[in-house]
Simulated assay, not measured.
Amino acid sequence: MTQPQTLAIENLCICARREGQDIQLVRELSLTLERGEILALVGGSGSGKSMTCAGAQDVLPPGVYRRAGRVLVDGSDVAPKSLRGRTVATVLQNPRSAFNPLRTIFDHAREVRRVARADAAEDRAATIAALSDTGLDEPERALALYPFEMSGGMLQRAMIALALLSGAPFLFADEPTTDLDLVVQARILDLLEGLVANRGLGILLVSHDMGVVARLATRVAVMQEGQVVEEGSVERIFSAPQHAVTRELVAAHLALYAGESA
């Protein structure tokens, strides 16, 4: 079966019901993600970045709902909930929140492969291969580990391995390095970059770190108050930002970089 090449979010509107009123959290947002690229979604806290990823997959928190919008895969309308684990895999910033503490890594892997309708007889070999591909040491030993027995960096690699096992052509990575130390951050970024180069994944990268964006992204979309206010290539965004929010983000990054170099 041919893998889809394009994932598009069109006119996404997300609201929260508060004190009898609808508050707009995401406003008529449209994005297109291609296989083989990293699209960075940036903006200040509360700008709607994570909510966009959740709304596109119908995994919104209680009290929040998608009022409008659709998701297209290669131009065809697709129900958001049908994307999860098949067309889109997700990597979260706090990997411990994504794992059942009472189940081993292999238990999680088998569940992912069941959703992907993979051959159960090959579960063990496929899981070891995926864990190895993410650079996890002693992948066979990791099968029997519980989440609490693993470090944050190990769990993040395990989560990415589960994404690989799903066979999903697109990956939503929501602040995937926030809670990791600098050395582990660098390794995770190398891993994500390699997945695009070697497997042709399309990655929607949610990040507040413009250094990460400068290193990894192909294109950048900047959000403010639930809207995309600027979009362009990473080179253009950093060399000639147009919107005030984009200029602030780039200026803050350059000031931090200059301070570290001094």
Rank of each mutant, 00 (worst) to 15 (best):
L171D: 06
R124H: 15
P139W: 04
Q21T: 14
P95C: 13
T127V: 10
M210V: 02
V234H: 06
V112G: 11
V71H: 03
P61I: 04
D209W: 14
D22E: 12
L31S: 09
V91D: 06
A129S: 14
Y65P: 02
L204P: 01
A173M: 03
H253E: 11
T104G: 12
F99A: 05
K81H: 10
L249W: 09
A255M: 09
F106Y: 12
N198F: 09
N198K: 14
P61A: 13
A252R: 10
V196D: 01
Q185C: 04
L180K: 00
E111F: 12
D123H: 05
V250C: 02
A258Q: 15
V78I: 11
V220R: 02
G44T: 09
E248Q: 12
A40W: 08
I105W: 01
V64N: 00
V26I: 03
P241A: 13
R141K: 11
Q227F: 04
A173N: 10
P241G: 11
L25E: 09
L205P: 05
V42C: 06
R110E: 15
R187L: 15
M51K: 00
L39A: 06
L165I: 13
T134C: 12
T177K: 02
V250K: 04
F172Q: 08
L192M: 15
E193G: 15
R86E: 13
L31V: 06
S97T: 09
R18F: 02
G194S: 10
S82Y: 01
E122H: 03
S151W: 09
N94A: 10
P176D: 05
G232I: 02
N198H: 13
V228N: 03
L33H: 12
G200C: 07
A197K: 11
F148E: 01
A89M: 10
T104E: 06
A158C: 12
L204W: 08
E140G: 05
M154I: 04
A130Q: 11
S233M: 09
L72Y: 07
Q156R: 10
L192D: 01
R110F: 03
F172R: 03
L41D: 03
G211R: 07
D181E: 02
S76P: 00
V59M: 05
G200Q: 12
S233I: 09
C53M: 13
M159E: 13
T177Y: 06
A244Q: 11
A89K: 11
L33P: 00
L205F: 12
L33E: 10
R114G: 03
Q21N: 10
A186R: 05
E235K: 07
L162F: 08
T246L: 01
T6K: 07
M1C: 12
A244R: 14
E140L: 10
R219I: 02
T6A: 07
M159K: 04
L201D: 03
Y146I: 08
L72Q: 03
D74A: 04
E248K: 12
Y146R: 05
A120T: 01
A129K: 14
T127R: 06
D74I: 06
T104I: 13
D119N: 13
P101W: 11
T6I: 14
T178G: 10
L60D: 08
V250I: 15
R27M: 01
L39S: 04
V112L: 12
Q93N: 08
G46P: 12
R70Y: 10
I23N: 01
H108A: 14
G44E: 15
E34Y: 14
Q224H: 15
G259W: 15
V229C: 02
D77W: 04
I9H: 01
